[in-house]
Computed example of a mutant assay.
Amino acid sequence: MTTAASARFEFRLRPEAKSRIEQAAGLVHESTSDFARTAAEERANRVLQEHLVATVVPAEFFEELLQALDAPAQANSALQRAAERAGSVVERR
């Protein structure tokens, strides 16, 4: 169920920006209000999504993670067994 827009939002802008918005709205056959509202809503959604997607971790954890990623790889026994098994299954040319 869609509700009708009832909240108002007013702002001032430079005359050249207003002209560009009017021109762009005309190109897509929208009113300037619809064009500006849609643009503002889309930008707000992008900004919110970028900030909500970010995961905040303690600095100590992040530093340990970076150190682990920078450390040389070390094969454990399971990885070595898998490599040996793959050597007998995969045909080398």
Rank of each mutant, 00 (worst) to 15 (best):
M1Q: 13
T2I: 11
T2D: 13
T2H: 10
A5E: 05
A5K: 11
A5D: 09
A5C: 09
A7D: 14
A7G: 02
R8T: 12
R8K: 15
F9D: 03
F9S: 04
F11M: 08
L13S: 04
P15F: 00
E16C: 06
K18G: 11
K18L: 13
S19E: 15
S19C: 07
R20C: 02
R20F: 08
I21D: 01
I21F: 11
E22Q: 14
A25K: 02
G26A: 11
L27E: 13
L27S: 09
L27A: 15
H29W: 04
H29L: 07
H29A: 13
E30T: 05
D34F: 05
F35L: 08
T38Q: 10
A39K: 08
A39W: 09
E41K: 11
E42Q: 12
R43T: 12
R43M: 12
R43F: 14
A44L: 15
A44S: 10
N45Y: 02
R46F: 06
R46P: 06
V47S: 03
V47F: 05
L48I: 15
Q49F: 13
E50D: 15
E50Q: 13
E50S: 15
L52H: 12
L52N: 13
V53E: 15
V53F: 03
A54R: 14
A54Y: 01
T55S: 02
T55Y: 04
V56C: 07
V57H: 14
V57C: 02
P58L: 12
P58I: 09
F62E: 15
E63D: 14
E63H: 03
E63V: 10
Q67S: 12
Q67R: 15
D70V: 02
D70S: 15
D70H: 05
A71Q: 11
A71I: 00
P72I: 06
A73T: 12
A73L: 06
Q74K: 14
Q74F: 06
N76F: 05
N76Q: 08
S77Q: 11
L79S: 13
Q80I: 14
R81A: 12
A82I: 00
A83S: 04
A83D: 01
E84A: 03
R85A: 14
R85N: 08
R85C: 00
A86S: 00
A86C: 02
A86I: 02
V89E: 02
V90T: 03
R92P: 01
R93H: 06
